[in-house]
Design a protein around this nucleic acid. Sequence first.
DNA 1: TGCCATCTCTACTGAACTAGTAGAGTTTTA
DNA 2: TAAAACTCTACTAGTTCAGTAGAGATGGCA
Lengths: 174, 174
Amino acid sequence: MNLSKRSEYALRALIDLGIARELGRPILQVSELAAKEKLPIKFLEQILTQLRQAGYVETKRGKLGGYALAKPAARIKLGAVIRLLDGPLAPIACVSQSAYERCTCPDEAHCGLRMLMLDVRNAIARILDRSTLAQIVEITLRKMRRDKVPVPFARHSFGLNDLVRLADSKSSRS
Amino acid sequence: MNLSKRSEYALRALIDLGIARELGRPILQVSELAAKEKLPIKFLEQILTQLRQAGYVETKRGKLGGYALAKPAARIKLGAVIRLLDGPLAPIACVSQSAYERCTCPDEAHCGLRMLMLDVRNAIARILDRSTLAQIVEITLRKMRRDKVPVPFARHSFGLNDLVRLADSKSSRS
DNA sequence: TGCCATCTCTACTGAACTAGTAGAGTTTTA
DNA sequence: TAAAACTCTACTAGTTCAGTAGAGATGGCA
C-alpha cells in the first residue's frame, strides 16, 4: 500500500506551487522547491518534467525561469497525479478501474479476496479522486494561519531573492 | 498502493482454509491449496510457513498432514495478515500507526500531504482491521450457494481422496 | 521396520523497480 | 555574452519481488 517517493515528491511540489500561486508567486524554481522540501534537485527535476508532459505544470526557461501550475488547482485531482506516477490505485489488478486485468482465480464473482480489495480500492479512490489540489492548498493555508505559523513562499517573508531585488532597486534609484 | 503476491496468496490460502473448515475439512494440503488457486507450490509453502510462525495456521506433518487454521476465523483480522507480510498499511511512514517514522517535511502538523495520506490510511485500515476471515468466508459461501455455484472443498464434491476412502471402507466391510 | 507422502529449512537467483546521480545541451534574461 | 535557469539522455547501486531448488525431518501405514 505504498506511495512511491516519486508520487510523494510530485504531490509536495504541486502543493507548494499551489500555495505559492495563492500567495502571489506563480513561478518557483526547482532549487526553491528542492530546498524547501529537502529533496534531491535532479530527481525532482525529472519528476517535474513528467508533470509538465502530463500538463500539470508549465515552465519558463532561462534566467528567472521556473515552474508554475498549468491549470487551476481546483482542476487537479490528486488521484490522477498518483496514477500518472505510480500506476493504478487498486491493490490488485482485478479491481482496478483504470487498468483492469483478470486474475488467476477461477470465478471473480465469487472471490472473497476480490470483494475485499474492491472495497479497499473504492475507499482509496473515493478520497483521492475527489480531493483536488485547491482543497489541500486551502486547508493547509487555513491551518497555518490559524496556528500563526509562518507561511512559506509569502512575499513578505524575505529571502535572498528579495534582498537582491531590494538592493537592485535601491542602487538603480540612486 | 499495491498488495504483494505474498499477501495475496496468503489471504487466498486463509480463505480456502476457512471455507474448508466450514465444510468439515479442517486440514488441507499445500498441494490442494496450490492446485485450487493455481499458485507455485514451493512459494506457497514459504508463505504458509510464515503464517504458521505468526500463529495463523498450524500444521500436521507426515502422511495425511497439511495445514489448518490455528484459531477461530472470527479472530483473524485481515489487516494484521497484510501487515505481517507486506508491512504497514499506510501509504507513507509518517501516517503509519504500526510503524511511524518522521518524514522530511518541516512541520507535520501543517503538512497537506500528510493530512491527505492520513485520510487514505484510515480508510484502508478501517476496512482491513475490521474485517475478519470469518466474515469473508461467510459472505463467499453465501454468494456461492445463492448463485448455485459448486462449493470447493465440500465433502460431497468427490475428489481422489473421497474415492480412496470409499474404496477403503467398502473393502473393509466386505 | 521400511516406505512414502507430507511438511521444514536454508540458500540461491533473474528480473524489475526504486531512488537517485551525472553531465552535456538549450533557452532566456540582464 | 555570461549566468542562471530548464531539458534530455544515460547510467547505476541497491533493494524487492516472485519465485526455484534441494536436502532434511516427521509421521502414518503396510
